[in-house]
Design a protein around this nucleic acid. Structure first.
Lengths: 334, 334
DNA sequence: ATGAAAGCGCTAACAA
DNA sequence: TTGTTAGCGCTTTCAT
């Protein structure tokens, strides 16, 4: 029942275990005839090398760890996909874990990943890590923190300023004539939403406008957005621009406004964040902020794979701002 | 630079390595005072147990392997999320790999996963696995094949009939008066699309109608859908119902039809597959097929975690049909 | 409650 | 080109 081992294969092939090991890892270091016998024995026995044993013996593994807040958000999934694409192309496995925005879970995840002695760890949406940060730093394992710009990166930081993005979006909305903007989020305190709101607040403050905001959750982002729109209408809030922390909120809000008889962008402009796939096909199209999600994942993988990681980190920049771009569409002409 | 080991912790704590091991795994098997000293030493040294060594010594790990066709499709991501949620709640890590619908990659992935000696392997969207199937079966590792109903499951099969779903959807569309249905897919040969088309064909055949179909790709599913709609209009195809293999295709098609002046569902009905988040907020709402994606992931994890896996598989059913439901909305009244 | 010895399956280093 | 020896870091079994 137990799996065949190197020894079993060696016996079948009539060679020593180390020869099998070599035949599998460095085929050229073994005589062609030997190699053939080993290959045959491998097939016959159904041998699959034990990665744990190999890692223990060699001291090197072939794994990336990725920590994401949640797989519910398409942007993190896009990042994961970019990373996984690159990793897989290099024969590196990817283990993924969700923090669910819970600090303790983030800690536990990091510990578990460190235990696997991965070749690199990517943190999408860096969490506060009271103890974990120290462990990560001491582990010597390459770490990329992505999605936002952080204070003092453990390893490399790849991201953009959520605050700046929202500030610019809000500024342009105000410049287009909107005087009563409201910021909407699903979870007031979650990760990047805080930073986005602060960017919004900076822009309103600069224009001498109040920084009003509303938070509401729902079964999905769309429903949350619909709830937000409904609340705004029900409360007869003075609002001529709804700036949402995410595209699905915006989409849900637009749909609900339409249902309630408000015209977008005539009565109210609506903007989102993320430029999700559907942003362009809505009617009207969604004005939003585009971010290179997948690219960040790819970059993270490329850096973690870099054999010169240490030097590169020492010589080069420790933070890479990938920027963002504002996509103006019909829902909020800019 | 190298990580501290059990020995290092033991030295600091003034006990033997095995005592540290016990203090960490079975705290109750050790005197409270000893435990305290060990915990202190662990913190002081920043010790993180090596999972590979533990797995090698104990013969048991704490990992799930998940094989998905692609992380681009939201339904597989939902499934992954359901599985990961459950796994994480039980302290099990999840490694994920994409086949990109390439058989060789599926094989390589399965091999890599088997090498990690995981506690279970989930295949979302089972691929053909000429050699891999044998390895999987022989490995003794619990395997769940999910998303579709397969011929002869390796372990447990959790899915639904894509063909039946499409047949029923098509039947109802025909019953509603549509006589010139066309099936649309992004990739003609990919996985489940084949089965969905065959269900479509069964329904048209039963009604004495031709089984027409169109395939077109694009930068995204939405763009592919738009291209499909454009092609239908450009070719002046007689089509009063477009049945898409995925919701994003349908959404893109609806948008394009609108742009081209066709009324949905007046001139043409459009249906999708998947009931993605946005299906309900489109205008008109999207008629589609809903499938318990996340639930399949949760079920898969629960089964793989079952300590009685073997017996349960021997006694219970080897396949679980989770079914589907057709959601009729404005884009195709049924 | 604690420890000593052995070994999990593999690979690095050194022979032959 | 092939084999021998030792040991990776941990847990098991068997003492004490």
């Amino acid at each position: 029942m137990s799996n065949p081992t190197l020894k079993d294969v060696a016996r079948v092939a009539g060679v020593s275990p180390i020869t099998v090991s070599r035949a599998l890892r460095v085929p050229d270091a073994v005589a062609p005839s030997t190699r053939a016998r080993v290959d045959a024995a491998v097939r016959e026995t159904g041998y699959v090398p034990d990665a744990a044993a190999a890692q223990l013996a060699s001291g090197t593994g072939n794994l990336f760890g990725v920590v994401v807040p949640t797989l519910e958000a398409p942007y993190f999934v896009d990042g994961l996909r970019g990373l996984a694409d690159t990793a897989e192309a290099h024969g590196v496995s990817v283990t993924v874990g969700q923090t669910s925005y819970i600090e303790a879970r983030a800690e536990a995840l990091v510990r578990a990943m460190l235990g696997a002695r991965p070749r690199g760890i990517a943190m999408f949406g860096p969490e506060p890590l009271p103890l974990g940060r120290g462990l990560l730093a001491r582990s010597g394992i390459p770490v990329v923190e992505a999605w936002e710009l952080v204070e003092d990166p453990i390893g490399l930081n790849i991201g953009f300023s959520h605050a700046a993005a929202m500030r610019e979006l809000t500024e342009r909305l105000i410049a287009s004539g909107r005087r009563r903007p409201v910021f909407a989020a699903r979870y007031a305190a979650h990760g990047r939403a805080v930073q986005r709101r602060s960017g919004f607040a900076e822009a309103t403050a600069a224009a001498g406008l109040p920084a009003r905001s509303i938070d509401r959750d729902g079964a999905s982002g769309f429903e949350a957005g619909a709830a937000i729109a409904a609340a705004i209408v029900a409360d007869r809030q003075e609002c001529d621009a709804l700036i949402c922390a995410a595209d699905n909120l915006a989409a849900g809000a637009i749909a609900e406004f339409a249902r309630l008889g408000l015209r977008v962008p005539g009565d109210i402009a609506v903007a989102g964040f993320g430029d999700l796939d559907f942003a362009g096909i809505l009617e009207p199209g969604l004005t939003t902020v585009r971010v290179p999600n997948r690219e960040m994942g790819r970059m993270a993988a490329a850096f973690l794979l870099d054999p010169d990681w240490r030097r590169r980190l020492a010589d080069g920049p420790r933070a890479i701002d990938v920027g963002y771009s504002i996509v103006a569409r019909g829902s909020a002409p800019l």
